[in-house]
Structure formats: structure tokens, C-alpha cells
């Protein structure tokens, strides 16, 4: 049972992690990103659409579907994030409002496009894109380690990709000049501009990256939770990622701990319900667990956190 909690927990935690890292990129550059929910949704939509297209027009692409999905989810998320970038970085919109606007736009646009594209291309009246099943694999030797072996059991392919992308993101964030400029832009953008770096470009890039990473998380949820893309993708996981990054104090390392906590708590809840032989009607109650936890965590940790200093400020070159 511990094993199930571990591998199911990881399958939930890793997509959340990559979405939260996306949020960290944006927020550490100084742009509040409440749009994660919409970005992960639009990313998942784009990825899923490309998967069904490939399936339809390129027979034989099926085994690579999940990789096609992930690649295009990142593209779609990144492109959609440009709206948030344009609005907040260049058009001086309120960052909170823009984030919420993106979420609502994403929900309505994907609902419309899914239905309309299904009708036009596949002649089907459906509000979903059916994805193939992502085969989970188990590493032969490592999985036999007691308890911890569960980490290497029933692994989704996207988990490996997420880990690699997360590592790369960490490297960019902590060690490269771009990462240094990004974090400085969230602390004192005027210092960055005076040092000859284009703050707006850095922030815009950060927001686009956050969209790409959220998209990757989104398609992973689509694969692991329902094996299709439908409006149910919008279940507040983007906001959960925000809670995780606040809990992790806008640091990638701490945020990893936060999402693991979320993931294990959630899978433990399901296992507990199963163990107590509760009927499936109680699923509704268990579903509230992550949200309740988020609220509690925010209550206990929000006092001590240190948000980036320039978070939410509209940056204006002329302002002194």
C-alpha cells in the first residue's frame, strides 16, 4: 500500500512541480502569474489536438503520441502565455486581472475549439480529444528495492521528461546569466535596466517559459487522470501549483518538497478511503483534500514567506 501511495503520489506531484516551476520563473521575474490554470489547460489542449491529428493523418505515429503531445503542449502553453506577457509586460495591465482573464479565455476558447474542431475535422459531436493510453513502465532492478523501489514502479514516460526538463530549468534559473537577470528583475528591475539588460524582454521570456512548463504539466495531467482532453482539465491544479510555490517560498528546491507533500497526501487519502471500504460516493469528500490542505498550508506559511520584492509592480523605464 505504501508503494501505491508513493508511485501514485509521484504521478500527481511531478506535473504539479513543473507547473509550479513555471510559476516561479514568472513570479521571480516580477510578474504575478495566476494564469497557470489557463496555461496548463491551453497547453494540454494544443498537445492533445496534435496527438489526435497525428493519429488521424499519420497512421503509425501512435507509439510516439505522448511525446508529440508533450512537445506541442509546451509550444501551445508558451504561445498562449504571450498574451499574459504582452498584457502585463508591455500593455501595463493589472497582473492579477490579466491572469484571471487568461484563465477564463483559456476555458472558453478550448471548449469552443474542441467542439468546433471535432465537428469540422472528425465530424464528431464531442467535447473531448481521446488520447492513447500512456504505458507505464517499471525499471527491472531498481524497482525491487523495498519501499523506495516504488519510485521506479509504474512510471509514466512524462515523469522522466518532466524530471529532465525540471533539471534543465533549475540550471537555467540558478546558474545562467539569463536566470540571474530574471531573478534580479523581480527584485529591482531598475538595477537590471541600468546594467544594460532589457527588463521587459527578460520578463516576457520568463512568462513564455512559464507557459511552456505549465503546458507540459497540463498534458501530463490529461494523460494520467483521464487519458483524454476535456473541460475537466480545469480543476484548479494551476492554483494548487501557486500554493505550492508560495509554500516553497519561490525556491525550486523547497517547492519540490511542497508538491511531494501534496502528491502523497492525495494518494494517501485515496488509499485510506479504499482501506476503510468507503463507498465511491465519498470520493467527493476525498477530492476536497488537496484544496483543504492548500488553504491550511497557506494559513500556516503565508506569514513567513518573502515574495519577490518587485512582484506585481508595473515596470516603467521612465519611473525613478
Amino acid at each position: 500500500m505504501i508503494e501505491i501511495i508513493l508511485y501514485d503520489g509521484l504521478a500527481f506531484a511531478l506535473p504539479l512541480l513543473i507547473i509550479a516551476i513555471g510559476g516561479i520563473f514568472s513570479e521571480r521575474s516580477g510578474i504575478i502569474n495566476l494564469a497557470l490554470e489557463g496555461l496548463l489547460g491551453f497547453g494540454a489542449f494544443t498537445g492533445a489536438f496534435m496527438v489526435v491529428m497525428a493519429d488521424h493523418f499519420l497512421p503509425g505515429s501512435q507509439p510516439y503520441g505522448i511525446y508529440i503531445g508533450m512537445a506541442f503542449a509546451m509550444v501551445g502553453g508558451g504561445l498562449f502565455a504571450m498574451i499574459h506577457g504582452l498584457l502585463t509586460v508591455y500593455y501595463r495591465a493589472n497582473q492579477v486581472i490579466s491572469g484571471v482573464v487568461i484563465n477564463i479565455l483559456s476555458m472558453s476558447l478550448t471548449a469552443f475549439l474542441t467542439r468546433q474542431l471535432n465537428a469540422i475535422i472528425f465530424n464528431a459531436a464531442s467535447n473531448r480529444f481521446q488520447l492513447g493510453v500512456a504505458d507505464r513502465f517499471t525499471l527491472p532492478l531498481l524497482s525491487e528495492i523495498p519501499v523506495l523501489g516504488a519510485v521506479f514502479t509504474k512510471v509514466y514516460p512524462f515523469q522522466v521528461v518532466i524530471l529532465l526538463v525540471a533539471l534543465l530549468a533549475y540550471l537555467v534559473f540558478e546558474k545562467t546569466p539569463f536566470g540571474i537577470h530574471l531573478k534580479a528583475s523581480g527584485d529591482n528591475p531598475h538595477a537590471v535596466e541600468a546594467a544594460g539588460v532589457d527588463v521587459k524582454r527578460v520578463r516576457f521570456a520568463a512568462v513564455m517559459i512559464s507557459g511552456a512548463l505549465a503546458g507540459l504539466g497540463g498534458i501530463s495531467f490529461a494523460y494520467s487522470i483521464s487519458a483524454n482532453f476535456n473541460p475537466m482539465i480545469y480543476m484548479g491544479y494551476g492554483y494548487l501549483a501557486i500554493a505550492a510555490l508560495i509554500f516553497g517560498n519561490w525556491q525550486i528546491g523547497n517547492t519540490l518538497l511542497a508538491v511531494l507533500f501534496f502528491g502523497f497526501a492525495r494518494s494517501a487519502g485515496y488509499e485510506l478511503a479504499k482501506a476503510l471500504e468507503m463507498s465511491s460516493t465519498f470520493n467527493d469528500i476525498i477530492m476536497t483534500l488537496p484544496y483543504m490542505l492548500t488553504l491550511l498550508i497557506l494559513i500556516f506559511f503565508s506569514k513567513q514567506n518573502a515574495a519577490p520584492r518587485a512582484l506585481g509592480e508595473i515596470y516603467d523605464k521612465g519611473k525613478r
Binding site: K175, T176, P177, I180, K183, A191, V192, E193, A194, A195
Partner: peptide, 29 residues
Amino acid sequence: KLVENYTIAQNIVLGMEPVKRFLGGVPLV
């Protein structure tokens, strides 16, 4: 115009960081 949570050295080189190549290509500070 200083970045509060950076060190003195990081502030001075901001925008003109000395770079070394990682894995032959990736620029790291």
C-alpha cells in the same frame, strides 16, 4: 540601483557576468 538579495559581487557584474561553458555550450555564470 542595487538588487537587495544579491551579493556585492553579483551586483557589480550584473549584465556583464563572467561566463564559463558547461557541456561545451551552455553558458553558466
